Simulated scan of single mutants.
Amino acid sequence: MREIIDGGKLDTYIQMHHMDRIFTEQLLQHITLYCFDKGELICSQGDPAQYLYILVEGKIKIYTNSAEGKTLILSFKTPLEVIGDLEYVQSIDFINTVEAVSPVMMIGVQHRWLKQFGHDHAPLLNFLLEIITKKFHLKNKSMSFNIMYPVEVRLASYLLSISFEESELVTSIKDAANLIGTSYRHLNRVITQFCNEGLIERHRGFILVKDIEGLRKLAGDNIYE
Rank of each mutant, 00 (worst) to 15 (best):
L10D: 01
I200V: 02
I107Q: 05
A219P: 02
L129C: 14
L215H: 00
Q50L: 06
Q29A: 07
L128G: 01
H121Y: 13
K115I: 11
D93A: 09
A100V: 05
M106V: 08
V89S: 04
L72K: 05
I147C: 12
T97K: 11
P79I: 08
Y51T: 01
A49V: 00
T32Y: 10
L199C: 10
Q90V: 15
K61Q: 12
K38E: 15
H119A: 11
I22E: 03
D47R: 01
D6L: 03
I162K: 14
Y184K: 06
V109W: 02
E68H: 15
Y53M: 04
N196F: 08
H30P: 00
A156D: 03
I212T: 03
D175P: 07
A176G: 04
I95T: 06
C195D: 13
M16L: 15
G46Q: 03
L86P: 11
I180T: 04
H119E: 14
T192R: 14
M148Q: 12
M148C: 08
V98S: 00
I62P: 03
L199Y: 11
I22A: 03
I5A: 05
E165F: 13
F136S: 15
F136N: 15
T64C: 02
N178P: 09
A100N: 03
L215S: 00
Q15G: 09
T64R: 05
Q15F: 08
K61F: 14
D93F: 02
P103F: 06
N222Q: 11
T133A: 10
L160R: 04
I95W: 02
L28F: 05
M105T: 06
E168P: 10
L215M: 02
Q193G: 09
G46W: 01
H111Q: 04
F145L: 09
S172Y: 12
V190T: 10
V56D: 01
V151S: 04
D211V: 00
I173Q: 08
T71D: 14
E166L: 11
Y149R: 13
T192Y: 13
I5C: 04
Y53P: 02
V82M: 07
D37P: 10
I5N: 07
F206D: 05
L52C: 00
T32G: 05
C195K: 14
T182P: 10
P123V: 06
I191S: 07
L124C: 03
R21F: 08
V209Y: 00
R189V: 14
K174W: 09
I4R: 07
K217W: 02
T133M: 09
N96C: 11
F94M: 09
E168R: 07
I200M: 00
S44W: 09
G205F: 05
T64E: 01
T12C: 09
F127K: 01
F117K: 05
F164S: 14
T71G: 14
T12I: 13
L74M: 14
I131D: 13
L74R: 13
M1I: 11
Y149K: 15
D37M: 12
A67W: 12
R185E: 13
T64K: 07
L208I: 09
D93T: 06
N178T: 10
G69H: 07
I162F: 13
R202H: 06
L28S: 05
I83A: 10
T133Y: 12
S167L: 15
F117A: 03
M148R: 11
G108F: 00
L155K: 00
G46T: 02
I212H: 00
Q50H: 12
I14Y: 03
